[in-house]
Amino acid sequence: MSTVTLSHLLRSQESSLLEAWLAEQRRSGNVRNLIADSDLKRQSAEFIQLLQQTVAEGDSTDYSSSTISREMRRFLDSITGDRAQLGFSPSETATFIFSFKRPLFEAIRTSTNDVTAQIDEVWNSSLLLDRLGLYVTESHQKAREGIILRQQQEMLELSTPVVKLWDGVLALPIIGTLDSSRTQTIMESLLERIVETGSEIAIIDITGVPTVDTLTAQHLLKTVTAARLMGAECIISGIRPQIAQTIVHLGVELGDVVTKASLADAFKIALQRTGFALAKRSSITAVK
């Protein structure tokens, strides 16, 4: 008998439940003013309708375990995705569901005087809302992971600029940790630019690389070797003291790779090799 009540309640008191819920959401402040009032109202109304369907379709005596319909999942995924994008935390997102409890329980309490029926109803609806809340938390997690993955890929593309320093001299300032997939991206863009510009010298500056382990050093060496196969020489610059020590400590053989402490030193060597020299302006005029 009590089961009819919730389905019935959701339908008969739809508008008053919605009002009370919206007031509850505004009061608890989880909206953070990031979602427009009209959107929140639309989302809340849609949720109540979907919940009503879920309860109606479920087992009439125990709707707490009724399956979450595809429409409900899609709806929850969409609002979670939006909220994850806006920077909501998982608990803030889940509060959207949990904040419905107070107005719902309030409605259940006033609907009947039978205390046992009230408790049954509250227990069942609470279980159902908890499951929906957990679903939202998981969905939020997935949405965040998707965002992080996309950002990683964007960073990967952004983080490897190959710049031309001089005719025939390229520079590649690397910032951040070098892992396998990143090294491949870096290697490809550097080698392609070498062909495009016909540059015979490339300076790989690792000032912005926090640590160098054996793997990183090997990746660097591979880049140098590939460039050499194509007919270009690489100079590695920006080797900080502790990195120099690490390289020696790890026993990494840098072979005959030219290394310099600073990008400026490397640039000087590169100019020399391409047949240029740096001179102060005053000394040139003095000669004249």
Binding site: Q184, M187, E188, L191, E192, I194, V195, K222, T225, A226, A227, L229, M230, G231
Partner: peptide, 10 residues
């Protein structure tokens, strides 16, 4: 030598 060839050889 093409870049892709050089990477593969290494």
């Amino acid at each position: 030598m093409q870049p892709a060839v050089a990477i593969t050889l290494v």
